[in-house]
Structure formats: structure tokens, C-alpha cells
Nucleic acid binder design. Sequence first.
DNA 1: CGCGCAATATGCAAGTTGCATGTAGCTGCC
DNA 2: GGCAGCTACATGCAACTTGCATATTGCGCG
Lengths: 132, 132
Amino acid sequence: MAESTGRKRTTSEPRLHGEMLATSLLAFLKGCNAYGYQLSQQLSDSGLPQSDSGTVYRALRQLENSGFVSSFWDTSDQGPARRMYSLTAAGELFLRTWIDALNRYQEVLTGALAGFDVPAATEGDSTEEEVT
Amino acid sequence: MAESTGRKRTTSEPRLHGEMLATSLLAFLKGCNAYGYQLSQQLSDSGLPQSDSGTVYRALRQLENSGFVSSFWDTSDQGPARRMYSLTAAGELFLRTWIDALNRYQEVLTGALAGFDVPAATEGDSTEEEVT
DNA sequence: CGCGCAATATGCAAGTTGCATGTAGCTGCC
DNA sequence: GGCAGCTACATGCAACTTGCATATTGCGCG
């Protein structure tokens, strides 16, 4: 059904993008240096939502612009040259900071699912429960 | 109002958006029905990154278009009418699915920070390069 | 030698977001 | 009554991001 070009959000599954894509890439690079194609495949095997390879390459470029990764051309192997990426100190710091925020985010979500009467004492909201 | 039109990404802190914003809203609505202004304030108090109120309202609209929340006008109180939102069954399901994906995502991140030589060495963990 | 693959890059349309601003109704004050 | 100020929601615009298709380059190989 080639209906239209551009992005379609109708039938496709959720995709990984934005800061979650960026931080996943940083996490993989924490383990070992890698190039884009490899990272794209690792994402496929990770159990996370898929992401387009073009998006991965652009995310890596942006991470480099932000100073979170650095790259060089690797021509030591056969085949096309690869742009090898590695994590910088700033990238590692960003990753830690992000994980911190993520923990708070996850608390919000799981707290909601748990029935939100967990003894997490930081309430103060106006939700006196009046469920039927 | 002369200089900076549109969005600026230079000096502002990270903001909450996309699926993380959407799922945070769903999580709040799991506890109790609420309207946009209220949700926007809850987000401010949540410890999560901030998000613009216009973005919150648009996110709620999209969630309604997707069938994850439903809304009605509440005129029972004084003051301007409020659009009351509540979580639908589809929204609850989506929230659970999302939290599932989130757990995998967090495993990737924390696994990376742990040094990925954690003693839980399952066969063929992260560093399996089966590169042809 | 042409074909396909590996690896990276880009053009385009559609979607998303930050910020400023606009609308509508109510409250407080004189 | 008049009017500023608040609450609650909505929108216009420019910048940014993304999915998909496609292009490009280099290599192996039958």
C-alpha cells in the first residue's frame, strides 16, 4: 500500500527515538566502541522497540555535536570505512544523570500501577480517594 | 518580543516530552481523574523534568485521539470550565505495555553502568559479536 | 565484470515541541 | 458597574525530530 511518503504513525509499532535512543547508544558505547551499523543491530537484539537506521546515524552525529561521543574513521578492516564511536567523559556523566532522572520517572509509573497507596510519603496532592 | 522566536535549545534544561510525557500523564490519571492544569502542576511537583503547559494540553488531546483517555467538560465547580480527563482501558493497557518496555530499557542502561561484567553472566550476554 | 552486501548519508514530508500570546469565565476590589 | 487579575484551556509560529526511501562508496565473489 504505498500511500504516502514520510512518517506514518498508523499501523507501525512504537519506535525508539529521542533521548531514549540517544541514551541507549551511550550505554552500548560504554561497553565498547562501535560503529553505527553495529549499534543499529545491537538495538534490534536488545528487546527494545526498534529504530530506523537513518535515525541512529543522525542520533550519533548529534551526540558528537553535543560532545557525548567522539568518532574517527576506522579503515583497519576490509569493507567500507567505518566511523568508530566512543563515549567521552561528558557522555558518561550525561548517562549517569539521565539514569537518575529515569529512576524518578519509573517511580511515577510503577507507583501508579501499584495502586498508588504505597507508603511513598511524598504526597500532598489533593487526591482524597472517593472511588465507588 | 523581538529576538527569539520559536524554540531555543541552547540554554534551557531538558524537558519532558514524547512518550515519557504521555505515559506520565497516563500514570497520574490512573490514580484519579484530572484536568490539564492540574496535571501540569503535578508534573512540576513530581521531580521529573519540567514540561511546557501548552505541550501538556496537546499531549492530552493526542492521547484522546488515540483512545487512551477520554474527556468531558466539568462545570460543577466555579471558575472556568475544566476538561476532565480519565484513563480508558486501552490507556491502562498501553501503560502496562510501556512499563514493560521501560524495564528492558533500564536494564540496558544500568547494565552498562555496572560494568557489564556483572556476575550474572548468562551465556552470550551483551558482548557477542557474531559479525559474519 | 556486474551484482549484492556492508556502512554511512541525505531529501522530504509529516509530526513534535517551546514560547508567546489569545480567549473565556470567574473573583476581588473600589 | 468597571476593571485588573486569576484560572484553565487553546493556538500560531519557527525550530527541531523522525520514518522511509533512496543514494553513495568500497569490497568480495561467482
